[in-house]
Simulated scan of single mutants.
Amino acid sequence: MSAKRDTMLRGLDLASASGLEIGALDKPVVPPATPRIFYVDYADTPTLRHNYRNDPNVEIGDIVQVGGIWGEQTLAEAAAPVAPVDFVVASHVIEHVPDLITWLQELGSVLKPGGQVRLAIPDKRFSFDVLRAETQYADVLTAWLVRARIPQARAVIDHIYRVTTVDCAQLWDGSVEPASLRPNNRPEHAEAIGRDVLEHGRYHDVHCWVFTPASFAGLMAELADAGYMQFKCLEFVDTERNNLEFFAALQPCADRTETVASWKAAQASVEADSPSASGRQALEQRLQQLDAELAAAALARDAAAARAAGLEQALAATRSEMDRVMASRSWRLTAPLRALLGVFRS
């Protein structure tokens, strides 16, 4: 959490700035001891503790004290005791919201001039969303047009049907191909949940939206260009190796051209820095090949060094034997005879 916290809160003066954190649950990015932090969630603290009492991934005793409930009322109403604020933080929240456009607009409604939004967003390439298609502009606009208050049937079905169990590190190093993975649930289960949404309007907590860093930045550029989103990109941090989330810092901006340009620049930066899955696999294979060649070269070098050492020892032994022979009494006594033979041969 420390590295993530440092990235998400970089440049914010927590000692004096006022802020909201949305959906903190038991793992707040902004520490509860921060003087002017206000937590917002879909329910109050006792209800959250009850709802998550059997979840092994949630420590119910650490669930933060919720100050505002955002659901039936707007965010401005939920945060009325403290709004407007200097910053809003949301970690792994944006992918859950049924109506992305309205959600972003409501974030803007509680910020002071110059305020910022800090987001942590899962990267589908390294999460259980790996089998799902990236969210498209039409998906987001449709949810806005119907003013979705619950995850829509299509998103729920897609999540239930395609969610899979993954190992983030294996997806990074290419030892597991996404095409080899299988969904966790059967089609009839996804159909039943979809029918429940359509017939009873029940809320099912799923990832409504699916992103990579590049697709998120591209979508933000499209929404900004169409006038549905008025946040420029201040900072964009790509997914780090063996991690599954990326980060974005947003700030309200009325200049559409500047806003679109900022997101296109963010998209270009991550497209240039992040190879595709096949590209990563090719690089991994090339690294393995180079490692094997280096190991073979090292063995050949060691063998050559051993051969050279053996030759040096043989040469030294031969020279020693030659010196011994030439220093012997017999060699000296036969010297005249060798000289005479040399005369006859010449």
Rank of each mutant, 00 (worst) to 15 (best):
L311G: 00
A314P: 03
R241D: 14
F231V: 05
A292Q: 13
A214K: 05
D291P: 00
A254W: 00
K264C: 05
R301Q: 00
R324K: 13
A303K: 09
A327E: 13
G227E: 05
A314R: 06
A308F: 02
L333R: 15
A300M: 10
S215G: 09
Y228F: 13
G218M: 03
A224V: 07
S276E: 14
T318C: 12
A214P: 10
A226S: 13
A282Y: 01
E240H: 12
F246D: 07
Q281S: 13
P275F: 04
L294V: 05
A298S: 09
Q288C: 12
R256L: 00
D238C: 09
A303S: 11
Q289N: 12
M220C: 13
L290H: 10
R319K: 10
W263Q: 01
W331A: 09
F247D: 05
R332I: 14
Q313R: 06
A248W: 06
S328L: 06
E321K: 03
A306W: 02
V270R: 03
P275I: 01
L290F: 10
A268M: 01
A306G: 02
L283E: 13
E293C: 05
A300P: 12
Q267F: 02
L287Y: 12
V270L: 05
R280V: 12
R301D: 10
E235Q: 10
F216G: 02
L283Y: 00
G218C: 06
E293G: 01
A296W: 08
P275W: 04
E245C: 04
M322C: 14
S269C: 03
A214Y: 02
A214T: 08
G227W: 02
E245N: 08
S320F: 01
D323F: 10
A309C: 00
S278Y: 13
A282Q: 11
A277S: 14
K232Y: 11
F216E: 04
D273F: 07
W331P: 13
S328E: 09
A306F: 04
L234I: 13
P252M: 03
N242Y: 14
L250Y: 01
Y228K: 05
E312K: 04
A327M: 13
D323P: 08
C233E: 02
E321W: 04
A272W: 02
L333V: 14
D302F: 01
G227F: 01
M326L: 15
M322G: 13
A272K: 07
M322W: 14
S276M: 11
D302S: 06
